[in-house]
Design a binder for these strands. Structure first.
Lengths: 230, 230
DNA sequence: TTGACTTAGTGAATTAATGCACTAAGCCCT
DNA sequence: AGGGCTTAGTGCATTAATTCACTAAGTCAA
């Protein structure tokens, strides 16, 4: 291990740092230089104590009586999250969603350029979508090596998703973002995050149903967006 | 309030029920009739006690020494999540992502047909994408009423997302799935879930970065997909 | 019928996350 | 120089979630 022991940041806090970062970017864009934990809390829709505690995991970067500096804290969060550099992405699965994500600004603008897209369907391989040509999933290993790709995004059918994950792991990828509604099995050294859009809607329908059953009485009323960990 | 007091199910459990449901669907598709908490736990990648506790919130639907019946439990989960019916969806924002989601099977197949898509850009209004014609966001209220729409999906730019949310709320929508990287402000009676794809990648990059810094030593090693609540 | 075995259900301990409320620092005004 | 004001940092109580480990119920074979 190197000199500096990396602080152990609670999972829940890690998931909030990107949200804070996004807000700080907006503040910077409007020339705000400083903010207090109260202000950030209001913008992020969380408790101010939580903001302070979350930020304290990064170090002691605020000034009492004053607040935090937007640019400095932005820097610190980016450093902590590994965002001082770009991370190249490959999309596996050139269907609707895959192609949409390949074009999606949101990835590039946050530092995750989609460098390649692959599929296993000969009918799709060779097609071009927004400056990317769909490659063959068989070449994944070479592509990952040559293009220095760090993150794989799975947008295949559920049926194909495990094979896609296997291919990514085989190609040396250690971070996977999975959109197929499947619990992937991967070595424990690989980080997997699954975004199942169906699940999101089903959680919403739970609250919608609850509203109907309780006649909208706010007692056991629907919650904010605080449900569910992954 | 009606007769039957609805059980209070912990948030964390609610978020897992859709995952169990998905697995049960797969089991049913392969003609499995019964399963034990251990089996489901293995498939879902969680602890067996957690599975039993989660399922116990629904009622006492297992048989000791035997397990749970796939079809019966499927029914119970669907009932609890409000999935005995379909919920119509409108997509606001006819960009890449919006159009892809409008076509996306995953919504329809899970009981959430996308009935309408709207935008505020005259250049997009009137275009047809997979049997849907892009409508004017100004007509949202009528569309929601006429098409009996329950859920709104926001796929606009961040800049436009709050206006989209306001329009949905104004149109009477009480459940919103937001893809814009913005913390929306809505009445507390409205359920909002935000899926920020950038955030997902940034969480992955945190672990990727950690791997680099610790030389991949598995000690403070990257985690499974258990980070982060919303 | 009995006894060995399996597995759901759950009380209780543990761990993680949250949020209050206090303390410590710094700014600014007089 | 000092006092009032603001706000970060944090110990601690509370709440939520997880997991253990036991108990209760059932099956099945002899």
């Amino acid at each position: 291990m190197t000199q500096l022991q990396r602080r152990k940041i609670p999972d829940a806090a890690i998931a909030r740092l990107p949200v804070y970062l996004q807000i700080l970017n907006n503040l910077a864009a409007t020339n705000v230089l400083r903010f207090s934990s109260d202000e950030l809390a209001a913008l992020a829709g969380v408790n101010a104590a939580k903001v302070r505690k979350d930020l304290s995991y990064l170090g002691s970067y605020g000034t009492r009586g004053v607040g935090y500096e937007v640019s400095y804290l932005t820097h610190q969060i980016k450093r902590e999250l590994g965002l001082m550099r770009e991370w190249n992405v490959v999309v596996v699965g050139a269907g609707n969603l895959g192609c949409a994500l390949a074009k999606f600004d949101g990835f590039l603008s946050r530092g995750f350029p989609v460098i390649a897209i692959v599929d296993n369907d000969p009918k799709k391989i060779g097609r071009t979508t927004s400056s990317l040509t769909v490659g063959d999933v068989k070449d994944l290993k070479n592509i990952v090596r040559d293009e220095k790709i760090s993150i794989g995004v799975i947008t295949t059918s559920s049926a194909a998703s495990q094979a896609a994950a296997d291919a990514l792991v085989e190609a040396g990828i250690t971070s996977i973002l999975n959109f197929a509604p499947v619990v992937l099995s991967t070595p424990s050294s690989v980080s997997v995050r699954s975004v199942d859009l169906g699940v999101e809607l089903q959680i919403l329908s739970y609250f919608e149903q609850m509203r109907l059953e309780t006649g909208g009485k706010s007692e056991n009323a629907p919650q904010l967006n605080t449900v569910g960990a992954r």
